[in-house]
């Protein structure tokens, strides 16, 4: 009996040692040499694997950063400048500051403004509805309202507002990972610079149809009337295909355009109403002044003409 136990113990021990030796050899032989810095960089990354940086996951990003040796083209939108500073410190290279972005919803056609023209009864998915037809309202450019963007958000930074039927972005949670932008079949969502002190303005409409048609489809559609374009003193607003758009790089947040819009579809975020009002007052004042100046010039010109006329008469 004792012998049996002895042999068993011995043979099992032997087997164990053999296996350990094999594993050791294999791990030596097939060891993958990886830059240690990759692990270090990965550690400081947010580990959300959202793909917002354009790389398939955080480790891939770390690898890419280490290989590139520069931060010119790589940026983790979720971690932002703070994380990128840490990454730069690990790699001993210069950090590149980038302005943070946020997703914005470029449609304000809520139930109230945009009447349904038919009832969609397929699978509840914007992507599928978009392959079928232009949508259950007259507007072929607007939000389909089935929340594919909400489903795809990894950060719970979005929800569908049941009253308006439009997605809402929660400012503090959005990391600008680009997932919703990629998902939306109508390209309603867009990454927008978060702005200084989180202040930003944008046009919440994408309808490129003629003004009258667009307004028939949606009460707050941009009709391309170009009033905002005329009000802008910084060339930040362009009107193409009956649609106004603000260039965030040129916009100085002077806010003078905001109230020129008939349907108030220039959306302002984190900007108090008084500021808009004072900007509007300023614009009106300036316009008044300009008009007065014009009138004065006109009067002066008339006076000059009269003088000339008198002169000729005298002559």
């Amino acid at each position: 009996m004792n012998e049996v136990i002895l042999y068993t113990v011995l043979s099992l021990t032997g087997l164990g040692i053999l296996a350990a030796a094999i594993i050791h050899l294999v791990s030596k032989k097939f060891a993958v040499q990886e830059d240690e810095r990759i692990d270090k960089v990965e550690e400081v990354l947010p580990a959300t694997n959202c793909g917002g940086c354009g790389q398939p996951g955080c480790r891939a990003f770390a690898k890419a950063v280490v290989e590139a040796g520069t931060l010119e083209e790589l940026h983790c939108p979720v971690g932002g400048n703070a994380v990128m500073k840490q990454v730069a410190a690990i790699l001993g290279i210069n950090a590149v500051e980038r302005d943070p972005f946020i997703a914005v919803v470029r449609c304000s056609g809520s139930f109230e403004y945009r009447k349904k023209t038919n009832i969609y009864d397929g699978e509840s998915s914007c992507k599928i509805a978009a392959t079928l037809y232009s949508g259950d309202t007259g507007c072929a450019y607007g939000c389909l309202g089935m929340g594919d963007c909400v489903d795809v958000c990894d950060f719970e930074a979005m929800y569908m507002d049941e009253k308006t039927g439009l997605p809402v972005i929660i400012e503090d949670k959005c990391t600008a990972c680009n997932a919703c932008v990629k998902e939306c079949p109508k390209d309603i969502l867009e990454l927008w610079p978060k702005g200084k002190k989180n202040k930003r303005i944008y046009v919440a409409c994408l309808n490129e149809e003629k003004g009258s048609t667009a307004r028939k489809e949606c009460a707050v559609a941009c009709s391309g009337c170009a009033k905002c374009f005329e009000a802008c003193r910084y060339d930040a607003i362009t009107v193409t295909n009956n649609l106004a758009a603000i260039d965030p790089e040129k916009c100085t947040l002077c806010l003078e355009c905001v109230e020129t819009c008939d349907v108030r579809n220039i959306i302002t975020v984190n900007i108090p109403d008084e500021k808009i009002k004072s900007a509007t007052d300023h614009r009106i004042k300036m316009e008044e002044r300009a008009r007065k100046k014009k009138e004065e010039e006109k009067l002066a010109a008339q006076a000059a003409q009269q003088q000339n006329g008198d002169a000729t008469k005298q002559a």
Binding site: G122, E123, S125, I128, T131
Partner: peptide
């Protein structure tokens, strides 16, 4: 099940 809906989406 909306089988064709999704197949059509995949094809598109």
């Amino acid at each position: 099940r909306p089988i064709l809906d999704y197949i059509r989406l995949g094809k598109t």
